[in-house]
C-alpha cells in the first residue's frame, strides 16, 4: 500500500465521518427499497427465500448509485480534481482509495441492513450461511469498483446523476446475476453457489485490473 493511497483513503473516510452523508442516505434508501418490495410482494416462507437474494442485491445496487455520484462530486468543488490531476502521484492510487472507501460504506450499510432484512422477510437460511461472507463482499466490490470508475467517467457530463446508472447497470448485469443466484442458492440451500462465487471473483479481478489500467486515461481526458 503506497502512501498516496493511504492519504486518499484517510481523507475520504474522514470527510465521510464528519458528514456521514453517504452512509446515511444509502442506508435509508436501501431500507426504503426493502420495505417497498416487502409491501408489494408480501413474502412468506419458501417464496421469501426465493426472492430475498434478488431484493437485497438490487436494494444495495440502487442505494450505492447515489453515494457513488457523490464520491466524485466532492472533488469537483473548488477544482480539487484539477489539482489532483496535476499531482505527481499515480491516478490508480486515488481510484483504489475511493473504491476502498466506498466499499467500506456499502459494507456498513449491508451489515446494518441484514437484521432488518431477516425480520422483514421472515428468513431462515437453509444453506451454508458463512458463504454469504464471500458472496456479498465480492458482489459489493464488483459494484463499487465499476461504479467508482463510471462515476469518474460521467462526472464532467451534463446530467451526470442520470448518466451513471445508465452506463453502470448494463456492465454490472453479469455480476448482479451471479450475486443474486449465489445468494438465492445459499438462502434456499438447493444448489451449490461455488460456481457463482468463482464467477464473481473472476469478474472482480478482470474489471478491477481494467479499471486500474484505464483510469489514468479517464482522469486526464480533456
Amino acid at each position: 500500500m503506497t502512501r498516496a493511497l493511504w492519504t486518499h483513503l484517510v481523507k475520504d473516510l474522514r470527510i465521510e465521518w464528519r458528514s456521514r452523508e453517504a452512509v446515511n442516505s444509502m442506508l435509508f434508501f436501501a431500507l426504503l427499497v426493502v420495505v417497498l418490495f416487502s409491501l408489494s410482494f408480501d413474502p412468506q416462507g419458501a417464496f421469501s427465500r426465493d426472492i430475498a437474494g434478488g431484493v437485497l442485491c438490487v436494494a444495495t445496487m440502487f442505494a450505492s448509485v447515489s453515494a457513488l455520484n457523490q464520491a466524485w462530486a466532492r472533488e469537483i468543488r473548488h477544482q480539487v480534481l484539477d489539482a489532483q490531476r496535476m499531482a505527481p502521484t499515480p491516478g490508480a492510487d486515488m481510484f483504489l482509495a475511493k473504491v476502498l472507501a466506498n466499499f467500506l460504506f456499502v459494507t456498513v450499510v449491508q451489515v446494518v441492513l441484514a437484521p432488518v432484512f431477516v425480520v422483514m422477510y421472515n428468513l431462515r437460511i437453509l444453506g451454508d450461511a458463512w458463504k454469504l461472507a464471500l458472496v456479498l463482499p465480492f458482489g459489493t466490490w464488483a459494484l463499487v469498483a465499476n461504479g467508482t470508475f463510471f462515476a469518474a467517467l460521467s462526472i464532467r457530463s451534463r446530467n451526470r446523476e442520470l448518466l451513471l446508472p445508465l452506463i453502470l447497470f448494463p456492465i454490472f448485469m453479469p455480476a448482479l446475476l451471479a450475486m443474486v443466484l449465489a445468494t438465492g442458492s445459499i438462502l434456499t440451500g438447493d444448489s451449490d453457489p461455488s460456481l457463482w462465487i468463482k464467477l464473481l471473483f473472476g469478474y472482480d479481478i478482470i474489471f478491477t485490473t481494467v479499471s486500474l489500467l484505464l483510469f489514468e486515461i479517464v482522469l486526464h481526458a480533456e
Binding site: S154, R158, I167
Partner: peptide, 30 residues
C-alpha cells in the same frame, strides 16, 4: 450511444472509447 449524446466537449471521444472497451470485455462474461 447515450454517453456520446450526454457528455459534451472534446473528452467525450476518450470516455466513449473507454466505455466501448469495457462493454466488449463484458460480453464473454455475460
Amino acid at each position: 450511444l447515450l454517453l456520446r449524446r450526454f457528455a459534451a466537449g472534446p473528452q467525450v471521444q476518450t470516455l466513449a472509447a473507454v466505455l466501448g472497451i469495457f462493454g466488449a470485455i463484458d460480453v464473454p462474461i455475460v
